[in-house]
Design a protein around this nucleic acid. Structure first.
Lengths: 339, 339
DNA sequence: CTGAAAGCGCTTACAG
DNA sequence: CTGAAAGCGCTTACAG
């Protein structure tokens, strides 16, 4: 049996209430009493029981982190560890712990979130993704629990606190950069179609084309669905078009390298034959061949701000929803060439 | 105020004890009563409070995951997300949640672990790394809390449950593979020197050399300490030796690619001039140039088994410590050449 | 400055 | 088959 507040109280010759106050460092307790109690706590190896403490305090000092289907997306790329690092740093700074979702399907995740929230297992929640028609997001909105999203919500974004890059603009700038290099036939390899980030980037892509009088052609776009075993084929098809693209925008550095691999198999070189650009600026991208031009989206900061937003909500429920846009920057390296 | 068991009881016209039994699906409760109570629970949107439930049950249904200094190692490479995915799957299968450490320094981590354990925040702990003279490991050993380690403990390994690859042998086989290709001057780029995995691999490296009558020369080894900004210089020095190595073993695929980058800057090509081999088989490694030969250490399985081990300990404290060795396999790709 | 008492939301012997 | 009561380990008005 672990030592409880009562054991300490008895041994220190005070009441449990006093011990409790010493733990809370209540200023109304004598220095002498505090010292004595602390001494006893140390001797007995006393540690407060979280469950009990949280039960009466009606809080858990814990943030719930909800990630997408663990088997696939979230875990595939370095986004997850990096955003978690940001969250972790901020949470730790405020003495909050992190509780992770473990569900693999949308239904499991939904159930978990409801239990976390209703069961008071967490004080707030960070949703690591934003997708269209997501029941989890809907639940979060109507539940009243403090939460923040990494990624712009699809509907009613002003009603929720979120942090995001300006994805539309990022993609637009990337395309403009390529246009500036003389490219007119630019392909777009995007993420899963039901993620808002994918929509936004596609939108930015279209916007840039339009602005430069380049007609949009769906044949130049490929999305995450292609990632299910027929990536290679999708790229082959792309390059077999009557007018194949001279540049490809991909939504992630690792995907960019995967594409580069397929291109090489087709004896197409980067950047000689095709220019390519990624997103996320993975640590390794500058060391690889070719060094990848990419957009650094400040993943760590996304995490930091997401944590900040929930923490704010937890501290004061009445603060209005807030949106944070984290800056990104285009990093030029060797994977794009002037036509 | 959230709806409690009392609210449900009142509305259903039963006692709180009965509601509690319905939740636990106690067979001594009438089907009719159960139905009625469940109906009311649904109507009122009742969810059991974890804190309260766990307080009396003296358990938390939660596993603590301790990772190394979040800012650096654990988060740098895909090991962390992948091992977490394994843990997550197994934990979820047994209705266990995951609680993550957030500390950045060893002291912070130590404090967190003690609080997690003593404060009954978690029922068991998975330590994601094994290093020499680690106070966290020592605490875990003497605390009596169920735990498992990913990686062989440095001392008294038989006293703790852990899962690991046969790192000594893995490294040995890698070196033997290179020797088999005709290499005699083989360099070793290892991880941080205080990690047991680094020791083991170095040991395997030495073992293989010895077995083939190749003298060990420390000048051919570089360790993680070189990763602090002077990686490039370390590689330059290595290749400037009187007899430069014709092959390099690196402890991680991404490190291998980083090294390859530095070699290229020195106008040394892989595998033409130098062969190189990695560890961990990152998803991207087969798509990169050159496709990397590497050792697949089954990271997902390491996580799965680690979770299995703690869960076992939690279920039955009396089971003796158990060790699981997860198989690895050498994957030949294009980064090594026969001399 | 400190203690006795009530209570956080639940579970579980003990009765009946 | 169900309820009243005690208790998990803590905190916090309320007294004094």
């Amino acid at each position: 049996m672990a030592v409880t507040i009562k054991d300490v109280a008895k041994r220190a010759g005070v009441s449990p209430a006093t011990v409790s106050r010493v733990i809370a460092d209540n200023p109304r307790i004598t220095g002498k009493t505090k010292e004595k109690v602390r001494e006893v706590m140390k001797i007995m190896g006393y540690y407060p029981n979280f469950q009990a403490r949280n039960l009466v305090a009606k809080k858990s000092q814990t943030l719930g982190i909800i990630m997408e289907n663990s088997a696939t997306l979230a875990f595939q790329n370095p986004f997850f560890p990096e955003v978690l690092r940001g969250i972790s740093t901020r949470a730790h700074g405020s003495q909050y712990g992190l509780y992770l979702s473990t569900g693999a399907t949308q239904e499991e995740i939904y159930r978990e979130v409801v239990e976390m929230a209703q069961g008071k297992r967490v004080d707030g929640i960070i949703l690591l993704y934003s997708k269209i028609g997501d029941p989890v997001m809907e639940y979060l909105c109507q539940s009243g629990i403090p939460f923040a999203v990494v990624g712009r919500p699809f509907k009613d974004p002003c009603a929720v606190s979120y942090v995001d890059n300006d994805n539309i603009n990022n993609a637009k700038e990337v395309v403009e950069y390529l246009v500036g290099l003389g490219h007119r036939h630019i392909a777009f390899v995007g993420g899963a179609a039901d993620f808002v980030v994918s929509l936004d980037r596609l939108e930015g892509y279209k916007l840039a084309l339009k602005q430069h009088g380049i007609p949009f052609d769906a044949a130049y776009t490929v999305n995450q669905e292609f990632m299910h075993g027929n990536e290679r084929e999708a790229i082959r098809r792309l390059m077999a078009l009557d007018i194949p693209p001279t540049a490809i925008v991909t939504h992630d550095d690792m995907v960019a390298y995967e594409v580069i691999g397929y291109l090489e198999d087709l004896e197409i070189s980067v950047p000689e034959d095709v220019s390519i650009i990624g997103f996320n600026n993975h640590a390794i991208s500058r060391h690889l061949k070719p060094p990848l031009s990419t957009v650094d989206i400040s993943i760590y900061d996304l995490g930091l701000h997401a944590a900040e937003l929930v923490l704010e909500k937890i501290t004061d429920e009445s603060v209005p929803p807030k949106q944070v846009v984290v800056p990104s920057r285009l990093i030029e390296r060797g994977s794009c060439r002037r036509l």
